[in-house]
Design a protein around this nucleic acid. Structure first.
Lengths: 255, 255
DNA sequence: CGTTTTCAATAACGTATGTTACATTGCACC
DNA sequence: GGTGCAATGTAACATACGTTATTGAAAACG
């Protein structure tokens, strides 16, 4: 129920003015909606009306084939924006569903028009968000096409970890992790059974501690190596602002 | 060496003004470069300088792992724009390489600033391009995660076919097709051997005729069915402007 | 606070796709 | 108009991952 993650993330990239803060703050307090866990926010085929900003909770974007096969194509964490400017399209080509209980703010076309007209830094920040999301989608393509089950799993966990940390949602080496093995299967294109095997292997190698709904990553650099993880695609730095500008543990980024 | 494909594609979605045409025309004749086949236009790690518009030829975006595994994450056909606004990022997270000989126009940051300031329809058209590219990338995620080799191959061929047709680059039921089986392997995440097997099967089923550098699709609707292809993600229509506004064969879009 | 449902774990077995190897065809280039 | 190299085609064999089934342990629920 907070704007903090979005602002923290965007300010990683662009310095926003006090007026920009007011604009974002207003946008994220008007028109707030709440959803339970495992519920659809948006359905494929609908006309897109608003852009959604995740204030709290986890959600995912997914697609389904006629015969029921389901692929999660991205995860939404607090501070994520679903699709800047989607409303120019006639209909949604995918669905968005919640994982946990979720609060969202609906951002209208008018909001974007106003931003475009008078708030160039927010425009830049939103372009950054858009470009990073595109890069993440490409990296998923890479993972699904080339990485083995183990690498793929490790990669996904690294990515989520770094994104959570950027949003200020990690505590030490652990974080909240509400995804089930079924969710992980739908996201990695593996079967649930093989997801289980793969997690066991990561545990046995001491790369993760995953229990209940909590994930710990004791040695991020080792997990990254197992994943062939190159953080460049997250574009977490800009014009001298390095990732390390955020207080993080020293082993945070390998390389 | 022509702007026609871009304009044809964008006008499918937004009606551009005469001034818009002039702007695009100027942008695509200044700063043109030519490349041979199988050559890199952009390399991962470089600082993005311009946005590239493909005037002629085929190219692809690809990523590589440290150990050499390579994934093609998208194809660029004539009329495609590589990445609207990439230059706000510090460095490229992927490479762009040519398939055939290619001519591109470099679009500068100033061009985009000018467009943003005074040409709202071009802005909308570019957003549409951006959103469709994102949707294509999601569909690739779906393909790689859920579709079988045969479905995946068929799906890729459908997609390329429809994109070429939108750009006005098909003749009857056939089109130029310069991709090698190696390219198809890198794009589908399959081995070259299995790509060969899969193409044989599509041929045996009469779904494609692929020989030399020409592809024919005698029954698009059947190929689409084999691919579980749903064209909605290409967003080829807008506010009453249907796909069929372009002169096409009746079996063009199934469903 | 027992009951029901979901989620995780594990085993046995099946298969789609990968790998290696080599033959064939096509095509660019002297 | 051969000669060389890239692209295609095929076969035999290997394996990473899928499927089905069952059990146990947590949560969710009334």
């Amino acid at each position: 129920m907070s704007l903090a993650s979005l602002v923290r993330k965007l300010e990683q990239f662009v310095r926003l003015s006090p007026v920009d803060h007011v604009i974002l703050n207003r946008a994220s307090t008007e028109r707030v909606r709440h959803f339970g866990p495992r519920v659809d926010i948006v359905r494929e085929g609908e006309k897109p009306k608003d852009v959604h900003l995740i204030l709290s909770g986890w959600a995912c974007r997914y697609k389904q084939l006629e015969d029921g096969r389901r692929q999660v194509v991205s995860f939404f964490l607090p501070g994520d924006i679903c699709d800047v400017n989607v409303f120019i399209l006639r209909e949604m080509d995918h669905s968005i569903g919640t994982i946990t209980a979720v609060s969202i703010a609906d951002l209208s076309r008018e909001f974007f028009d106003k931003v475009a007209a008078g708030h160039p830094r927010i425009v830049t920040a939103f372009w950054w968000e858009t470009l990073v999301n595109a890069a993440i989608q490409r990296e998923w393509t890479m993972s699904l096409g080339q990485r083995t089950a183990l690498e793929r799993m490790a990669h996904l966990l690294c990515e989520i970890w770094l994104r959570l940390r950027l949003a200020g949602l990690t505590q030490g080496d652990s974080c909240d992790f509400p995804l089930t093995q079924g969710d992980l299967a739908d996201a990695t294109g593996l079967s649930k059974v093989h997801v289980n095997r793969t997690l066991q292997e990561l545990r046995a190698d001491g790369l993760i501690v995953l229990k209940g709904k909590t994930l710990a990553v004791p040695k991020l650099d080792r997990l990254m190596r197992a994943a062939l993880f190159n953080p460049n695609y997250l574009h977490m730095d800009h014009e001298g602002r390095q990732l390390d500008a955020v207080p993080v543990s020293p082993d945070a980024v390998a390389g």
